[in-house]
């Protein structure tokens, strides 16, 4: 695992200026384009939370998804299909699950640093929206969200062989997540049948559980544990797929 973390650090260091720029620009732009306009349409949540307060965990989860996507794409698609740098990794005497976890956790660390900066930027843009007591929970659920989402993107990366197919699948996934996982729009805005279905998506469960602990002070065991179980299943599936794709 330390090798993967060191590698991630080298990758950041080798493109230091763009990494620093990215760490400030992405949170700033995403905060503006998602919350600034929407809060004038949806003033408050159904439970009475100001929209910018309600949307914060969703924004952080979406931000982490946007940030981890290129990192996963690079390691599991580009380095597998284009310049084959994933192959020597798979030849090392380590399990395929270690490779999946190593890349995932090292990417998560980079994402965590940027979303922490994002929280800082958000607190400047919306001074009353960020509560110190909420930060730990927001980061915790963002981690659960991004580990599950990261595995979905790994699955996509391993299942596709052509960049055009991958990009189409990725955009569809990302846009769907944005609208149907309760990140920016409450489930109640959708027709009842759709809303019921959407709430059972593992990624939606993370946003439901995070808002439960943040706004009604209740730990939602089912909606917290289920996405974690899905993540573990996906790690096993992705490890198997990686082995198959590498013909090993």
């Amino acid at each position: 695992m330390s090798a993967f973390i060191l590698r991630r650090w080298w990758l950041i260091r080798n493109r230091l200026m763009s990494s620093i720029s990215l760490a400030f620009i992405v949170p700033f732009i995403l905060s503006i384009v998602t919350v600034f306009g929407t809060k004038n349409i949806i003033i408050s949540s159904i439970n009475g939370q100001p929209y910018e307060v309600w949307a914060l965990p969703g924004l952080m989860m979406f931000m982490s998804a946007v940030l981890i996507t290129p990192l996963i794409y690079r390691d599991f698609f580009d380095l597998r299909i284009h310049n084959k740098a994933l192959i020597p990794m798979t030849l090392a005497p380590i399990r395929k699950s270690t490779i999946i976890l190593g890349i995932l956790f090292s990417s998560l660390l980079e994402v965590l640093v940027i979303i922490t900066i994002g929280l800082g930027i958000y607190s400047i843009l919306f001074p009353h929206a960020v509560s110190i007591g909420h930060i730990g929970y927001i980061l915790l659920y963002s981690i659960i969200f991004v580990l599950l989402y990261g595995n979905i993107i790994i699955l996509l990366s391993l299942l596709t062989e052509r960049i055009s197919v991958f990009i189409s699948a990725l955009l569809t996934t990302l846009i769907s997540i944005m609208f149907i996982c309760g990140l920016f729009i409450e489930f109640e805005f959708f027709p009842i049948t759709m809303s019921t279905i959407f709430q059972y998506f593992p990624l939606s469960m993370v946003s439901i559980a995070s808002r439960s602990i943040l706004f009604i002070n209740t730990f939602d065991t089912f909606n917290t544990v289920t996405p974690i179980i899905f993540t573990l299943i996906l790690i096993i599936l992705n490890s198997f797929l990686l082995k198959r794709k590498m013909k090993q």
């Binding site: 330390s2 090798a3 060191l6 590698r7 080298w10 990758l11 080798n14 493109r15 380095l79 310049n83 084959k84 740098a85 192959i87 020597p88 990794m89 090392a92 005497p93 380590i94």
Partner: peptide, 23 residues
């Protein structure tokens, strides 16, 4: 292998170090 399979965004030394650490 015949084809180049180094990570283009790491230095040559970092590529070598990373691989050896995996072992």
């Amino acid at each position: 292998p015949h084809d180049i399979d180094l990570d283009p965004w790491l230095t040559l030394e970092q590529n070598i170090q990373f691989d050896a650490k995996l072992y």
